[in-house]
């Protein structure tokens, strides 16, 4: 069996205000997986994601990448754009920080914008874009650096249902085309069921794994998949595991 891309072992995290966010979290993530972390508010999903990204240091436990540490991308719940920069300027940010030459950075950023359906909006400022478009810019920015591991913290939570579904499909395309590994934090049973090849359900605070479900969605899926008995059955499994975790 191939070693995992990433291993969390015995991770615990207590914040300065005394809140124990995570206690002894163990999790292996295989290369190419689309893994959703599901759980109630405050169960430590986002904390776990930040620990994986290296933005938080755990009090105990280790995060290991058995191979080379993959290039990371991070998408926050809010688009987190620089309002003073154009869409292209925002997407260029990781490339500029990595010292990519200006012409190449601009070309790569423009390609990333085109991939999320925003060709022609390069010169638009964030305030001129809708919520869904801003989130697309945020995803394009994460993709521009050509990550191998994409971390997403409830990125579509604030969007309307139709925009959310469209972005779900775009994300699946990016995942398949770039052979990404994705860790996706969400509250939504249906979103996790639609997107994921694996759903990890977390217990309420302090967070730890309550259930680890492998799903078998069709490799290529669209809107019609949401209406199939298989989708309903998979969603029911995730929902039951979540209810049990919260009980």
């Amino acid at each position: 069996m191939a070693p995992p891309l990433l291993s969390l072992s015995g991770i615990s995290k207590r914040f300065d205000n005394g809140t124990q966010a995570i206690a002894r979290l163990d999790l292996d993530v295989a290369e190419g997986e689309f893994l959703s972390l599901v759980g109630p508010s405050g169960c430590g999903k986002s904390t776990a994601l930040r620990i994986v990204a290296g933005l938080l240091t755990p009090d105990a436990g280790t995060v290991t990448f058995p191979g080379e540490r993959p290039e990371l991308g991070f998408v926050f719940q809010e688009p987190t754009l620089m309002p003073w920069a154009t869409a292209l300027g925002n997407v260029r940010l990781p490339l500029d920080l990595k010292g990519v030459r200006k012409a190449e950075a601009e070309a790569r950023a423009a390609r990333a914008l085109a991939r999320v359906g925003l060709a022609g909006f390069e010169k638009s400022y964030p305030r001129e874009l809708s919520g869904g478009m801003k989130m697309r810019v945020s995803i394009a920015r994460a993709m521009a650096a050509e990550p191998k591991l994409l971390l997403m913290d409830e990125p579509f939570a604030a969007l309307d249902e139709l925009t959310r579904q469209a972005l779900n499909d775009d994300l699946l395309s990016l995942w398949a085309e770039d052979r990404l590994t994705v860790i996706f934090v969400t509250h939504s049973v249906y979103e996790s069921t639609y997107l994921s090849s694996r759903v990890v359900v977390m217990r309420p605070r302090p967070g730890r794994v309550a259930a680890d479900l492998t799903l078998t969605p069709p490799a290529v899926r669209d809107e019609s998949y949401r209406l199939t008995p298989q989708f309903t059955a998979e969603a029911a499994r995730v929902s039951a595991a979540l209810k049990e975790a919260m009980a």
């Binding site: 930040r50 990204a53 290296g54 933005l55 990371l72 991070f74 926050f76 809010e78 987190t80 620089m82 940010l93 990781p94 920080l97 990595k98 650096a145």
Partner: peptide, 13 residues
């Protein structure tokens, strides 16, 4: 924005 600062840290700024 602290998330933006975190993002820059993630990219090694």
């Amino acid at each position: 924005d602290h998330n933006l600062i975190d993002l820059l840290k993630l990219y090694g700024a």
